[in-house]
Design a protein around this nucleic acid. Structure first.
Length: 429
DNA sequence: GCAGCTCTCGCAGTAGAATA
DNA sequence: TATTCTACTGCGAGAGCTGC
């Protein structure tokens, strides 16, 4: 019994003449589509070994690399430390506080590694679908050597180059101690791992610790950006404006067009896009680590970023750094940040049983905003359960009931329930 | 000792976002 | 389209307290 039959038996549906007819029509339509695609498909391009002249013309600086698995193209560039990437020079990204990197990645083992041993990775692929049908036709890599950034781009002139290209990638990964990517955990590395396994070349990336910058970047910067795409972060945070950048969605089609007609202009911008993406990984990591360092958190960076950093520090278990950062933010000029910092710090103190210190912060919050229901309720809890000041707790609860905007029905029920209990306690004396 | 209540904490589930 | 992660929400278990 096949799946269709099993579903039919579960739903009680019987195959009718009409369904069989619809199936036949569907199959005929599918056959037509496949035939149409086969007619449009260009003849398979076969490359004679060493036929790289056109590619070398198309990709300036590309070198053909041969290994036991075949040949592919590798572009090597050295970006000097004095080169600007956005507002900052590349040499500023060449060192990094690895404790911050470990916090960003939520991997303690990164803390003992060297930033100069990291491998920055970004791929350009034939689509987003993932699975076994998508190929990374360009793998951008980078690492630091002193103040300079070494860039390597491994390129497939045809799908037949893949095995050789993966072997080259495996060599570059060998000796590197961790990976840095943007959404690489969900996309690049998974895709490359599948290709490695399909080509029976092991899975050299799977064992490397991985700093995927998407999630910490969203956590620290997402509050002030319309989205968390790498290009948005480049423009708004790193100050990098790309001229004539090729949108990611156009890249697969450009590669397919290049396979058909070989126009060198089609891929020029794709290579530049990929190289800039890889350098941006280093720039973004450096920026994020700067937000996380406690001495920087008290400095001139965005108050909202520092608040997000304090939350991340607390979440990762660095309570002391979080409290230092929050302590500086409760005096921030930005009212919303000040309020959130007080709230977060008060919750930390409450969790530690430092009721009166927490109560002081709730009092400050109520003084700033008498309608702050969260602060009113938290202070009421402390008055009821710690201070045994039931009258004050009842007053605060009534104030919360009168607050604006009015509480939701659920909040109102909870506040009235608290008030009724406090009234009983007061009547009993 | 038991019942009832409140609060906290951890877990699970869900929605949303990013990648070419 | 698959995968990963975050933020948020709801639920239940357990601790602690109080009154009978």
């Amino acid at each position: 019994m096949n799946l269709r039959d099993r579903l039919r038996s579960l739903t009680g549906e019987k195959e009718t003449g009409a369904t069989a007819s619809r199936q036949k029509e569907g199959l005929a339509e599918l056959r037509k589509r496949i035939e149409a695609i086969m007619e449009r498909r260009p003849a398979r391009r076969t490359f004679a070994p060493g036929r790289t002249g056109r590619v070398r013309g198309a990709i300036e600086g590309g070198e053909e690399v041969a290994n036991a698995h075949g040949r592919c193209i590798v572009l090597s560039r050295r970006i000097e430390g004095s080169s600007l990437h956005g507002r900052r020079a590349v040499r500023e990204f060449a060192s990094m506080d690895m404790k911050a990197a470990a916090l960003l990645a939520n991997r303690a083992d990164l803390g003992s590694l060297s930033w100069q041993d990291g491998l920055f990775l970004d791929t350009e692929t034939t689509g987003l679908a993932g699975g076994t049908g998508t190929v990374a036709f360009l793998v951008g890599l980078g690492w630091f050597e002193g103040e300079a950034f070494e860039s390597r781009q491994i390129f497939l002139r045809d799908f037949g180059d893949e095995r050789a290209a993966l072997a080259v990638l495996k060599e570059y990964a060998h000796g590197r101690s961790f990976l840095v990517s943007f959404n690489g955990k969900a996309f690049d590395v998974g895709l490359l791992s599948a290709r490695f396994i399909m080509n029976r070349l092991g899975d050299p990336l799977a064992t490397l610790p991985h700093l995927d910058l998407l999630h910490p970047a969203r956590r620290l910067l997402g509050h002030r950006l319309e989205n968390s795409r790498l290009t948005t972060m480049e423009e708004r945070v790193l100050g990098l404006m790309r001229d004539h950048d090729v949108p990611g969605s156009e890249i697969p089609q450009r590669y397919f067009d290049w396979l058909r007609c070989g126009d060198p202009l089609l891929l020029r911008d794709v290579f530049l896009h990929n190289r800039l993406d890889v350098i941006s990984l280093a720039a973004l990591a450096s920026h994020l680590s700067g937000i996380l360092r406690p001495e920087t958190a008290c400095g001139p960076s965005e108050p909202g970023d520092r608040l997000a950093a304090a939350r991340l520090l607390h979440l990762r278990g660095d309570r002391d750094s979080a409290v230092v950062a929050l302590g500086s933010l409760v005096r921030s000029d930005c009212a919303s940040v000040r309020g959130e910092a007080r709230r977060h710090l008060a919750l930390i103190l409450k969790k530690e049983g430092r009721w009166e210190e927490a109560a002081g912060l709730w009092e400050d919050m109520i003084a700033s905003d008498p309608d702050d229901r969260f602060a009113l309720e938290e202070l009421a809890k402390i008055c009821e359960h710690r201070r045994r000041d039931w009258q004050r707790a009842a007053d605060l609860t009534e104030q919360a009931l009168r607050s604006s905007p009015p509480p939701s029905p659920g909040e109102r029920d909870a506040l009235q329930h608290r008030l009724a209990r406090l009234s009983r306690l007061l009547q009993r004396g």
